[in-house]
Computed example of a mutant assay.
Amino acid sequence: MEIAITGVTGNLGGQVARAVSEAGFKARLLARSPERAPQLEGATVYQAAYENTESVRQALTGVDVLFMVSAKENPLRVKQHLDFVDAAKEAGVKHIVYTSFYNAADDSTFTLARDHAKTEKHIKDLGLTYTFIRDNFYLEFFLDMLKEYGEIKGPAGLGKCSAVSRRDVSAVASKILTQPQNWENQTLNMTGPDDLNMEEIVARINKIESQNFVYIDETVEEAYESRKVWPAEQWEYDSWVSTYTAIKRGEQAGLSTDIERVLGRKPISLEDVWK
């Protein structure tokens, strides 16, 4: 079985590549900048971007199962995804394992989730075997903000989010890549073990650390204004703010047993990620 892995210079793809190598499987590591790819036993590095070109098709020719990490956020991300999926289809790839987003839909409140819905649809429309790993927001995202700023700030109200550890997602992806036949044409929801609002996240970390971390429940207008300290384009501001409005509207709530189903254990808790 020939495995290909994208995103290997990033957190998630890099973790998956290492786990697949440690499990004794050979893999093709696809990277826009091959010199930044990890040097792993049994791995071969290919230069490839999210596009449909002859070099990309050659890199994918002979691949049975492809792990496709969603591209870095940008206005052309949907086109990049669709072009790359087209290249995979033309190269004869049989099965795409794609990192999507929890409750992805064309009308998702979280603006970037709409990209994932379009990508999922294209993979299905081309008749490819698929496994969609729908990640909720990462626990690490919220905890890193507490570490850096001492606060979580956004218009989430008391909406709950079943945030998940990136480590769990990488473990699930690695397991699926080495046993793809068990997960064909399935959509798996990646959630943590708890549904928590922002106040509860802060309170639980304060209990561990005896800190005075805070949650500031902004209005939408306040959220846009406070984020102007970071120069960005409008679509970026929209995505940052809609992270919280999606939580407020309940779109990121709900617990799944899919991680336990794949890994045979409970998801990693907020406290364990912090530690």
Rank of each mutant, 00 (worst) to 15 (best):
A59W: 00
G254L: 05
A71S: 15
S210Y: 11
E151R: 14
E225F: 10
K160P: 08
D217Y: 02
T245P: 11
R36N: 12
Y138A: 09
A48V: 01
S256Q: 03
D238S: 02
E90F: 02
T99S: 07
K160Q: 13
K228L: 10
S108V: 00
T6Y: 05
F84A: 04
K266N: 12
V229M: 13
A171L: 14
S174I: 01
S239V: 11
L128Y: 12
S70M: 07
L82G: 08
L112R: 08
V214E: 09
K160G: 08
I216T: 13
V169Y: 01
E251R: 07
G192M: 02
I216M: 07
L177G: 00
E233V: 03
S256R: 00
K160A: 09
Q252L: 12
S210K: 15
D106Q: 10
F132T: 01
E222A: 10
G154M: 01
A113W: 13
E251L: 03
E209Q: 13
N185L: 10
T131V: 08
K121I: 06
Y46E: 10
K124W: 05
T243C: 11
G192W: 00
D135A: 15
A88Y: 06
S170F: 00
S100L: 02
E251W: 04
R166M: 12
V202G: 05
S21Y: 10
A48T: 01
M1E: 11
V63C: 09
L112Y: 13
S55A: 15
V56L: 02
K175G: 04
V220E: 15
R32F: 08
E199Y: 15
S55E: 14
N206Q: 08
H95W: 01
R261D: 10
I201L: 04
E209G: 09
Y138N: 08
K248C: 09
G14S: 03
L177A: 00
G10S: 15
F67L: 13
H122N: 10
A17I: 05
L188Q: 05
V69Y: 10
D144K: 13
K207W: 08
F25H: 14
I205P: 05
G24W: 08
S256G: 08
L66S: 06
V78R: 09
I96W: 01
M68K: 01
E222H: 07
S269E: 02
R249C: 07
A113D: 11
Y130L: 06
D115G: 07
A246W: 09
E140G: 03
E41D: 11
A37D: 02
P267H: 00
P75E: 09
Q15T: 12
G10F: 15
P38M: 00
H95R: 01
T61H: 11
G7N: 02
R227S: 06
R36C: 06
N52I: 03
I268L: 14
T243R: 15
L126W: 06
V229N: 13
Q181M: 08
D106S: 11
T61F: 06
L139V: 13
E260V: 07
G24R: 01
A27Q: 08
